[in-house]
Structures are given as C-alpha cells and as structure tokens.
C-alpha cells in the first residue's frame, strides 16, 4: 500500500498538488456556475410559468407544442427592439474600448516619471474607481442632471446623466460644413467625456504599472543612437506595453458589457434582460434566451479582440 504512494512520480505529485490548489474553485464552479448555467440554458429552451407555488418548466417541443428554438427565434427574428439594444451596446462598447484605451495610455504617459505633484494626481485619477460604481454613482449623476430624478423604480433613468453640453461646438462644426453624422458622433463623444474619464481608473493603473517596468537604460541607449521621443515611443514603449494594451482592451470591454445600465443610457441590454427576468413581467425563459444571445455576442467580441490585439501583441513581445 505504502509503495503506491511512494511510486507516485514527481510529475504525479505535482499534478495532485495542482489539483489541491484549484480544488476550491472547481467545487465553486460546479455549484455556482455550471449548475446555474445549465438551469438557465434549460429555461431558454422552455416555457416557464410562475405561480404562487413556484414555477413550472415545460421544455419546448417535448412538453409543449412550441418550436424548440422559440425563445431565441422571438428575439432574433420577431422582436427587433432587442437586436437594436444589442447594436447600441456593441457600438457603445467599441467606442469605449478605443477611447478609454487611448486616453488611459495618454494619461499614464503624463503621470509617468518624476515631477512635482505626481502623487496627488495619481490619487485623483484613481479616485473614480471608488466613486463611479454602483448605486452611488447613479445617485450623484441624477443629482447633477437635476430634473428627471423620480420615476416609479428606485434606480431610475437619468437620461444623458452628467454631461458637458457642447452645443456650441456642434454649431461651429455644422457651420463649418462638416458631415452631420460625423458631427453628431463627435458631439456624443465629447458629451461622454466624463463617463470615459471616470471609467479609466483601473486601465491607467495597469498602464502605469507597465510603463514602470521599462528600464530607463533603453531610452538612454535610444537617445544616444539619435532617436527622438516619437521614435522611442514606437520602438521601445509600444512593443513592451502591448500586452497591457490587450489586457486593457479586454478589461474595458467586459466592464462595459457587464455593468448594469438604465432604460435609455448605459448598458441598455443588461437593463432589458434584468427587467425581463426580474422586473414586472418575470419571464425567466425570455430573459434566459436574451442573456445567452448576449453572452454569445460578448464571446465573439472577446475573440475578435484577441485576434486584432492579443495575437499581434504577443508576436511583438516575442520578437523583441
């Protein structure tokens, strides 16, 4: 018997130890992720009716006469409003990823290095992480936007929330003969500036951490070789921090996809799913189908980001 234990190879012992370390997670995964996920997928292919005594689930095409894909068909083909919401969320997220990634790299570059007041600025720029999550932020936004505070639900739509209105900028651009769609897009972007700035805290942190890793000697060598600031950014900084760019792309993307929104602002898809499942209607089956369509879209986005940013960045890093 004791022999069996002794015979466990080094490799085998390593595997056992590895499994022991991840064991808590495996249990948690099965109980609180896989099981609920299977349940939710089952709901999405069923008709769920809720009564006082609980709810009953009848699987489409087996327990009832509906098409197996009925819930999915409804949101993909019959009801255009959900697709419209998906489109809005996808476009908002794409814009957020681009703007926040560029912006946070820019700010990190400003904050990097030694200068007076650096610590104060750093403390300020990370502050949004504390300020701008959850209910508190919604309440601050609502307060600042004034009027539309009170509707029937407790967390309410704050419309455009806190925005710097830039109507004069829009007028100038329109008079300048610029394309109206373009002007609209730019105006929207500027109006959103606070939202972007306030969501960049973690990203700035990650970029700063990446920049701190670059040895000063690299830049000195480049200077001796006669490279200017622009060249050393693209030849030194960019390749080294490109994994962080990928990390930030993914982080921003998920942050945007997973935060709760309101009816007309923020993440409208999450709001619609939440309302369908836990609002007045309580359609678990529809909510489940909506959420799995949405999840698929998120996965496609993450894969695209991997192909567009992740793969090239890993090649750049290897090529160094």
């Amino acid at each position: 018997m004791g022999d069996g234990v002794k015979k466990l190879t080094l490799r085998g012992r390593e595997a056992v130890n590895g499994y022991l370390f991840i064991l808590p997670w495996v249990i948690g995964l099965l109980l609180f992720f896989i099981a609920p996920m299977i349940e939710s997928i089952r709901f999405s292919f069923a008709e769920v009716s809720i009564s006082d005594s609980g709810f009953s689930v009848s699987i489409n095409g087996i327990d009832n006469a509906r098409n197996f894909w009925e819930n999915y068909r409804y949101f993909l083909l019959a009801d255009a409003s959900f697709l419209e919401k998906l489109r809005t969320t996808a476009l908002d997220t794409a814009a957020a990823v681009i703007v926040i990634t560029v912006f946070s790299l820019f700010v990190a570059a400003l904050l990097h290095g030694k200068f007076k007041g650096r610590n104060v600025y750093r403390a300020v720029f990370f502050l949004p992480v504390i300020m701008t999550t959850g209910v508190m932020y919604l309440l601050i936004q609502q307060g600042m936007s004034g009027g539309e505070l009170y509707t029937s639900t407790s967390i309410v739509d704050s419309g455009n929330a806190f925005t710097f209105k830039v109507t004069s900028l829009r007028d100038i651009m329109l008079q300048g003969g610029l394309n109206a769609d373009f002007v609209e897009a730019v105006t929207k972007l500027v109006n959103q500036i606070f939202n972007y700035v306030s969501k960049a805290g973690v990203q700035i942190l990650l970029f700063l951490s990446g920049l701190a890793k670059i040895p000063a000697s690299h830049y000195e060598a480049a200077k001796i070789e006669g490279a200017n600031g622009w060249e050393s950014f693209w030849k030194i900084t960019f390749p080294i921090i490109s994994p962080v760019i990928f990390l930030n792309t993914i982080y921003t993307m998920l942050d945007s996809f997973i935060t709760y929104g309101m009816e007309n602002s923020g993440n409208v898809t999450m709001y619609a799913i939440q309302q369908m499942g836990f609002g007045k209607v309580m359609r678990f089956d529809y909510a489940a189908a909506m959420s799995w369509i949405y999840t698929l879209m998120i996965i496609v986005f993450v894969l695209l980001a991997y192909l567009a940013v992740g793969l090239p960045s890993s090649k750049v890093t290897e090529g160094r």
């Binding site: 609920p36 349940e39 799913i273 499942g277 836990f278 678990f284």
Partner: peptide, 17 residues
C-alpha cells in the same frame, strides 16, 4: 468563461442553487 458570462445570465439558476 466565468469572467465573460454576465452575472445576469445565471442569476435565475443561482437563485435556485
């Protein structure tokens, strides 16, 4: 996958659990 799937997707099942 656990990072990517939004919490709302599994919330009904989680409530059951």
């Amino acid at each position: 996958l656990t990072v990517v799937v939004p919490p709302v997707s599994i919330s009904t099942g989680l409530f059951q659990a």
